[in-house]
């Protein structure tokens, strides 16, 4: 069984973001990169499948610059068998990334049985790659899954919907599954794992190798800007009991008309 896990490297959540001068992306030089947290659930799920099926091979795939290979190395230190890196310094759109991932999986020479991803990346929050990839590969896909079990030749997944209810899907392989928080608890990469990861193979491919060119771009980024600063909060003085009724109706009014939350 071949499991592919698509991972993205995203800025650490504590990073201070600065847009580049031309607005096409953000300054990346001083960013500390981490594996996209939703992708950690995907890696963990792949490793859980491998635990009950030792013949399974877990390959992690990433599209991005080589300078920092943190996410792939972490995944291998957690227990993935090998990695494929499609090198590019461009800030690609979801379509190009999905195409690159498809090309990388094809280049691996292995037939994918299960492709796991995070449901979204926490940097651009596009929520598109798993679905686009599944469409390109003509495979069934389910996203936002919080439950996963293999039953015979089928895979049963649970998916969260509005109001906390769960939908249950049964799919055959191959398929694309996008993972949500709550699916599992990602393990730490152990120190022996880090040592072992050094010896695990990492294949490097170019965009050309995986058949992606400029003509695949569907979205051009031009105006990365910081969100406007939040205006300071309003304070209401209500220490005088006689005035409290007025203050409360004033606050309720503002919550209705200004904040529009009630």
């Amino acid at each position: 069984m071949n499991i592919f896990v698509c991972v993205k490297q995203v800025p650490d959540t504590e990073t201070k973001i600065t847009p580049t001068g031309d607005g096409s992306f953000i300054e990346t030089a001083s960013i500390k990169w981490i594996m996209n947290p939703y992708d950690e659930f995907a890696v963990e799920q792949a490793l859980l499948i491998k635990q009950s099926n030792p013949a399974a091979n877990v390959t992690v795939v990433r599209v991005g610059p080589t300078k920092d290979t943190e996410a792939l190395r972490t995944a291998m230190a957690m227990g993935a068998d090998d990695a494929i890196l499609v090198e590019t310094n461009e800030n690609l759109d979801s379509y190009s990334i999905a195409k690159a991932l498809k090309g990388a999986i094809a280049k691996s020479g292995k037939t994918a049985d299960i492709i796991l991803t995070g449901k979204q990346a926490i940097d651009d929050d596009a929520l598109q790659v798993p679905q686009v990839l599944a469409e390109m590969l003509n495979l069934p896909s389910v996203s936002v899954i919080v439950g996963f079990e293999v039953s015979g030749n089928a895979i049963k997944v649970k998916r969260e919907i509005e109001g906390g209810a769960l939908e249950v899907y049964e799919l055959g392989t191959p398929c694309v599954i996008a993972c949500n928080k709550g699916l599992n608890t990602p393990r730490y990469a152990s120190l022996p794992g880090i040592m072992k990861a050094k010896k695990k193979p990492m294949t490097q491919l170019s965009l050309t190798d995986v058949g992606v060119s400029d003509s695949d771009r569907r979205v051009k980024y031009s105006q990365f800007r910081l969100p406007p600063e939040k205006p300071p909060g309003k304070k209401f003085e209500a220490t005088d009991p006689a005035k409290q009724n007025d203050v409360v109706s004033q606050v309720v009014g503002l919550l209705r008309t200004e904040a529009k939350v009630i």
Binding site: R73, T74, Y188, A189, S190, L191, I194, M195
Partner: peptide, 8 residues
């Protein structure tokens, strides 16, 4: 490797 150990 040391940087990864430190991260962990």
């Amino acid at each position: 490797e040391q940087r990864e150990i430190r991260e962990l």
